[in-house]
């Protein structure tokens, strides 16, 4: 355990360094190229006025949104894997992101724009869509008596299809809203702004704290729910707190930036290979490396085919889908060994 703690510390320091480098590069790249030095100067109000404007009004909110989204998705992915006791669980794979996007689509089509306690109608609907999908998964689990990989993946596929087909129907029926809806299904940070950031930061921050509070419970649940209960984990209470928190996080993230898949699958998995499965270490590191990964992907999306932009969800899927197949093969092989 001391060893994995040391590795965790090393990963944290390494992550900070890598983040500093990626940030500096990312902030200097874009429509108007500037040197890293110039962009850092502009960041601290020491440079050219027009460069300051680009950095502060356009690039910084986008970079921060990508980072918070990546961190939040990776954390929720890690939590889902523990909660479902399955290394392949992830809000995208389970269809929860699609459910949230469906909620967002309905809000767009209905033109719901009344904000409730600071959240836009789109966020509230996205949360409701995510929550309904989550409840459906648990109902399937209860009906089948267990939540093995096959059940989990098949119900994820079914729910994904269901939500996507309704989204496509809406797009077909409402050409005028098509572009706006399409943005949700592919994911994009191009409309990031400080206003949106101010909405997601508190949700993700509170979410991080709550999930961290339940890290020990999650460790227990990973070994089986009945067992966790036998050594004092209040599983029912923990599960409700964790589901509500992470679903709300997903709802808000999808409402701001659309469906971005596989971050929650890849990042926690790779981290576990190094530091093990203990949630106390896994959660903060997932946030850090999720941020880093999505920032790198979004930078690529911004600059790869300038002046056009690639959809971020397509880029993460490009990495994620092969990784998912790798996990599937490895899992099958392990099962055959036992």
């Amino acid at each position: 355990m001391e060893e994995s703690r040391r590795k965790g510390k090393k990963l944290l320091i390494f992550g900070f360094l890598l983040l500093a480098v990626t940030l500096s590069v990312s902030i200097s790249l874009g429509g108007a190229d500037m040197s890293i030095i110039d962009s850092l100067k502009a960041l601290f109000f020491l440079g050219d006025n027009s460069q300051e404007k680009i950095i502060w009004a356009i690039r910084l909110p986008r970079i921060l949104t990508a980072m918070i989204t990546g961190g939040g998705l990776a954390m929720v992915g890690a939590v889902f894997q523990g909660l479902f006791r399955n290394p392949m669980a992830d809000p995208f794979v389970l269809g929860i992101s699609s459910g949230a996007a469906l909620g967002a689509t309905i809000a767009i089509v209905l033109g719901v724009s009344i904000p409730i306690i600071g959240f836009t109608g789109i966020s509230i609907f996205a949360f409701a869509g995510a929550l309904l999908t989550m409840i459906t998964i648990f109902m399937i689990a209860r009906a089948r008596g267990s939540l093995d990989s096959t059940t989990l993946l098949l119900s994820g596929i079914a729910l994904n299809f269901f939500s996507s087909s309704i989204i496509y129907l809406f797009m077909f029926l409402r050409y005028d809203k098509m572009k706006q809806i399409l943005m949700w299904t592919f994911g994009s940070f191009s409309t990031s702004s400080w206003e949106k950031l101010i909405m997601i930061i508190p949700v993700i921050l509170v979410g991080m704290i709550v999930l961290r509070l339940f890290a020990r419970d999650l460790n227990g649940i990973m070994t089986g729910e009945t067992q966790a209960k036998s050594f004092g984990v209040d599983v029912d209470r923990a599960r409700i707190a964790i589901i509500l928190t992470s679903t709300f996080m997903i709802g808000v993230l999808v409402a701001t930036s659309g469906i971005i898949g596989f971050v929650g699958l890849m990042i926690p998995h790779l981290l576990r290979l190094v530091i093990g499965a203990d949630f106390k270490k896994l959660l903060p590191l997932s946030f850090m490396y999720g941020s880093l990964f999505l920032l790198a992907c979004d930078t690529l999306a911004r600059v790869a085919v300038k002046p056009a932009e690639l959809p971020i969800g397509a880029i993460t899927a490009l990495f994620g889908a092969p990784f998912f197949i790798f996990l599937l093969i490895r899992k099958k092989r392990d099962e055959n060994h036992v």
């Binding site: 355990m1 994995s4 894997q81 523990g82 006791r85 399955n86 290394p87 020990r216 460790n219 227990g220 990973m222 070994t223 089986g224 009945t226 067992q227 209960k229 036998s230 050594f231 004092g232 984990v233 576990r272 290979l273 093990g276 499965a277 203990d278």
Partner: peptide, 29 residues
Amino acid sequence: AKKISMVPQETSIDFDLMGEEIVLMGRIP
């Protein structure tokens, strides 16, 4: 959990939890 502990027939864990981390869970109560 301070009065009763439990050993099930079988435990299947898909995650890399270390031996000591699992035993330490016994201290949760």
